[in-house]
């Protein structure tokens, strides 16, 4: 096991009866980074994360987390990780403080340590004044923050979060990202799953795109976007076929794909320079242009490119 890698997974597969939810995936997470599994619902993200956090048995493959072999020493893995589940998992009838105390005791933390850690974390997630409030009286965003604090109680080496901002309003989502970044800055490695492009894009140091149980692309958000080319031009014309043959040999065009009503052109040099050439060329050939759009590749485009489809919901 490489010291730089806090998680190493090779050949991980998981099936429910006949359904293969995770299909032979391998990846590694570097110490200190924010790693995202990006994929649509049903892609296998939750199954993969549930195997890593020991809620599902390891059926096939090899997993090392924080230097511990998942199959031979799951207890040590449990000791080294923190978890924030997809759904809210709080006892509605316990207070914020009791929730964290209970958690600390589950991990055999000392009493004094629990006390000081609670102060510290509630300060971090700005819940210090809610210590004695029952969790059912917290707002959705506060519940999430409490869960993040809970996940951090034991100073885990890796914090796992399954869809951390699902169901939160845009403002609370941004706030949650800020907290996660803060946590990460303090040295905790973060592993998250998400189906939000913006979340993966903004937060991650490394993204693995997963679909149908397989990792189909990996890289930094920048690399993934750059791999599509410099710019993307979306073009709608009266005759898609003609337009395609007319511009296919232009300098700087990386690829042209037909998509819906028109063409998606990926360029490998500045699109703003290519676009006028394309327009004048099409005018010369008397092909009517009905709409044109130039943009930088986004995570959505990356996802579209690799999966060939829009993100399912």
């Amino acid at each position: 096991m490489n010291n730089e890698n806090i998680i190493e997974v090779s050949g991980l597969s998981h099936s429910y009866d006949d359904l293969r939810a995770v299909d032979n995936i391998s990846f590694r997470v570097k110490k200190g980074e924010i790693f995202s599994f990006l994929g649509p619902n049903g892609a296998g993200k939750s199954t993969a994360i549930n195997v890593l956090i020991t809620l599902l048995p390891l059926q096939k493959g090899e997993v090392f987390i924080a230097g511990h072999n998942l199959s031979s020493s799951p207890k040590y893995v449990r000791d080294s990780i923190g978890i924030v589940f997809q759904e809210i998992t709080l006892d509605r009838d316990m207070t914020v403080r009791e929730t964290l105390e209970f958690h600390g005791n589950l991990y055999s933390m000392g009493r004094d340590e629990i006390g000081s850690r609670i102060e510290e974390l509630l300060g971090l997630v700005e819940l210090s004044d809610k210590k004695d409030i029952l969790t059912k009286n917290l707002s959705g965003g506060m519940k999430r923050r409490l869960e993040i604090a809970r996940g951090l109680m034991t100073r885990p080496k890796v914090l796992f979060l399954d869809e951390p901002t699902i169901g939160l309003d845009p403002q609370t989502r941004r706030k949650t990202w800020d907290y996660l970044r803060m946590v990460n800055d303090e040295g905790t490695t973060i592993f998250l799953t998400t189906h939000y492009m913006d979340e993966a894009d903004i937060l991650s140091d490394w993204i693995s795109i997963i679909d149908h149980g397989r990792i189909i692309a990996s890289g930094t958000p920048e690399d993934l976007k750059n791999s599509l080319g410099e710019d993307i031009i979306c073009l709608e014309t009266a005759d898609t076929e003609l337009a395609k043959t007319a511009i296919i040999n232009y300098d700087g065009i990386k690829s042209i794909t037909e998509s819906g009503e028109g063409l998606v052109i990926m360029t490998d040099r500045d699109g703003a320079q290519i676009l006028p050439e394309i327009i004048s060329g099409l005018n010369r050939d008397e092909i009517t242009i009905s709409s044109v759009n130039l943009k930088k590749p986004s995570m959505d485009d990356v996802f579209m490119h690799y999966t060939g489809k829009e993100l399912r919901d």
Binding site: F85, T89, L90, D91, R92, R150
Partner: peptide, 16 residues
């Protein structure tokens, strides 16, 4: 109750 509210997951995934 704990199963339905997810708290059992917190417990089961802990080293206890």
């Amino acid at each position: 109750f704990d199963k339905n509210w997810g708290i059992l997951r917190e417990i089961i995934a802990s080293p206890m």
